[in-house]
Design a protein around this nucleic acid. Structure first.
Lengths: 343, 343
DNA sequence: GTGAAAGCGCTAACAA
DNA sequence: TTGTTAGCGCTTTCAC
């Protein structure tokens, strides 16, 4: 059923039917009702492509999911983020177009989305420091929102981020206050902006107390369970092991816990652990490890909000960038004295 | 830059330029080269919507991701599946349209995708027993592929599944061969087809040995870490605890391991564990728990293959359904004697 | 309050 | 080998 068929069926012009369906005020109420009913009855929905072509808006949003050619891990937070964003989109009548690309094709993916006119806006995932994709997107002229930030000049674009630096500074301070002096940081890959910020926060806290960051206590890697396990095992076996471990991802923290358990030690007694938590619903996992999580809750919520921001930008393109920095809150465990300094 | 501009620029008709770009044989080689170069130079890419409208094919595939209104968990295997499928799509020049919907809106999502003409085919996720969505999709007339199966009549549609029944039957037999008699099953929600098949396989193995399945040793739930932990804790505390636990998801297995560790027992010594593994790269996790995983590797690979199957169906719609059943292989751990029966 | 007609950017008969 | 023309299904002036 298309517009033409529907309109001849009703004995009206396509114009009138279109206007009735799209809520134009000049249509007589009786007519509108008649049209609406017929549309519902025949399950009519306007053809997306035709509508797009006519209006110039595609009513869809692009997400480019980069998969590194080096390590084929798919960032597990994408799923929840996408779920949140998707909710917002469907409420607003937008579609979500996903493009999974290897690093080297990413630039092409953006260019194509723009020149093919398949999306009205883009969400940029996993920004790196001085990410070249920002310039690219600006040149392209498509509205976009970054989930995270890309380096220190954050003024010129729209973004939503959690306060990674402060979060890790606070976590480090907490451990310092408890008397810890050898605090390890298991971080994500530091060419990613969030990981860099976390390291800076950690180091700032140490330096404020006059402690020089020990490079042997820091690692930057993909945040998998295996890495959490492997690195913790190595740390614990070292001559001068840390008394506390700060972890950048809840997934790695699972490996950290496993390593500690395998080594015969106990979290909160022999070694303290604090981790960032993206609040993935399926992984929530005991309360023996204190976690920092975004105040506004999960990455799911971040997806929703990023989508809202983008739709706002699309609807009024000349506004200033929209930027939001979410603070984190500390969630303490209850089962063990998780942050106690070893006697 | 659009076709009209490009063609006037070249002093050719739109038709010729279009033909050159789309590889029609009748175009003179010299002309084609000239066109190609100009297109590359001006970064021309045909407008997707216009092309779709003209050809009647949207060159995109829909994935509907259901989020239950009861439990808001996003299935973490989606991410890897989508990554695999996305790869196939971009190689074939297709876009992927994601629609995240709550249960109650799912039917509408399919209808809309069809009537709006926004996709050429659909991948159906998370089929249930006698899933009503199958009939719906058949009526709609859009080609589709199911990741999994939906009940016992599997003849009429295209699907890709792993042999869940056999996998769990074999796992159960393995444990039985080692002398285990009280084997627990921590299963997924059994209105999901995969979980039902797993239970049937488990029960078949038990019955063959003349063991009546004990309802107290079986649970059907969302496969989260927390559930793995909670249920294992309860099982171990029961008067007549199991000597082995069969787990339906690697994520739950992490919770199972934690529960066993917290209870002061040891996997492979006090209680044996075998788990299914979807081979999510970031979760791979020790080798003290033997796993069953699909022979053809990961859910990522399944995504790729489902996408291929769907594209095949789209390109030649009158062919018979394409159906693939992947067997699983057992991967034994090395660190512990993981399947030993307690002395 | 309604309709006729042009046009969005492309493809595909049909002509030449 | 290239061009002319109609049309995909909708929105949107402009006229009535």
């Amino acid at each position: 059923m298309n517009l033409k068929e529907l309109s001849t069926l009703l004995g009206l012009s396509q114009t009138t039917v279109s206007r009735a369906l799209n809520g134009f005020p000049e249509v007589k109420e009786a007519t509108r009702r008649r049209v609406m009913e017929a549309a519902a009855l025949h399950n009519y929905a306007p053809n997306r492509r035709a509508k797009s072509l006519a209006t110039g808006r595609s009513m869809s949003i692009g997400h480019v999911i980069p998969i590194s050619s080096k390590h084929e891990m798919v960032n597990p937070v994408f799923a929840d983020f996408i779920a949140g964003a998707g909710e917002t989109y469907s409420n607003a009548g937008y579609d979500m177009v996903l493009s999974v690309v290897r690093d080297e094709d990413e630039e092409k993916a953006y260019r194509d989305m723009a020149s093919k006119g398949s999306v009205d806006g883009i969400i940029l995932h996993g920004p790196r420091e001085n990410d070249p994709r920002l310039k690219l997107l600006s040149n392209i002229g498509l509205p976009f929102v970054v989930h995270g930030r890309a380096g220190d000049d954050t003024s010129a674009y729209s973004w939503l981020d959690i306060n990674n630096g402060r979060s890790f500074e606070r976590a480090t301070n907490l451990l310092l206050d408890l008397g810890h002096r050898r605090i390890a940081l298991l971080n994500g890959l530091e060419y990613m902006d969030f990981a860099r910020r976390r390291r800076l926060g950690y180091e700032a806290a140490l330096r404020t107390r006059g402690i020089a960051p020990d490079p042997d206590l820091r690692d930057s890697n993909e945040m998998t369970e295996q890495n959490g396990f492997r690195l913790t095992t190595a740390l614990l076996a070292a001559p001068n092991p840390p008394t506390a471990i700060l972890v950048s991802s809840y997934i790695s923290a699972i490996g950290v816990r496993r390593a500690i358990s395998v080594s015969g030690q106990t979290i909160g007694k022999d070694v303290s652990v604090v981790t960032h938590d993206d609040d993935l619903s399926y992984l929530r996992n005991g309360d023996d490890i204190p976690t920092f999580t975004a105040t506004q809750s999960s990455v799911r919520e971040a997806g929703r909000r990023c989508a809202e921001m983008l739709l706002e930008l699309i609807q009024s393109p000349q506004t200033a960038p929209i930027q939001e920095l979410w603070e984190t809150k500390l969630v303490l465990g209850q089962s063990t004295g998780p942050l106690k300094m070893r006697a």
